[in-house]
């Protein structure tokens, strides 16, 4: 498994962990309130910080581990195959992201709740980000 493959796998997991944590807290707050919890700046910022910290730390740790064990190319080198995989993965991700935005927008026409639209758009972003990471891993395992 290459450095980038491991990195994307770790980031994908980090996105899912941070996203699940965010929605678990929103769920608890909503139960306590008896209605859908409104967006909270502190929670949203905490989610972003945790996400960046988890993905940053995973790439850093992986980079250190690879630097100690790998005699091959420089760690973090981005070759032609990496570029092709990145392009294919991001192109497919843009469709997932579009769907992750379309669905909440259409749903909003029926429920008219800004809070629900906010949370569902975050769900769409989490889904797209995780898909992007796992598509990278999937494409790395295909013979390009």
């Amino acid at each position: 498994m290459s450095f980038w493959e491991k990195g994307y796998l770790a980031t994908g997991l980090a996105v899912l962990v941070a996203g699940s944590g965010y929605f678990a807290i929103v769920w608890k707050q909503s139960l306590a309130l008896g209605s859908l919890a409104p967006p909270n700046w502190i929670l949203f910022s905490a989610y972003l910080v945790v996400l960046m910290a988890l993905s940053g730390v995973s790439f850093l740790l992986l980079g250190r581990a690879e630097a100690r064990s790998d005699d091959g190319p420089e760690v973090g080198d981005f070759d032609e195959r990496d570029r092709l995989i990145r392009m294919k993965s991001l192109s497919a991700t843009s469709h997932v992201l579009s769907l992750g935005v379309y669905v909440p927008l259409v749903w909003f026409l029926f429920h008219q709740s800004g809070d629900l639209l906010f949370h569902s758009l975050i769900g769409g972003l989490v889904l797209a980000e995780a898909t992007m990471c796992f598509l990278h891993v999937f494409n790395y395992n295909r013979a390009y």
């Binding site: 909270n40 991700t93 758009l121 972003l125």
Partner: peptide, 20 residues
Amino acid sequence: GDLSGYVLGAGVIIGLLHYP
């Protein structure tokens, strides 16, 4: 398609920051 995804993502994030 790849770059247009960034335009969409940036727009949605602006909306999410504006809403609260």
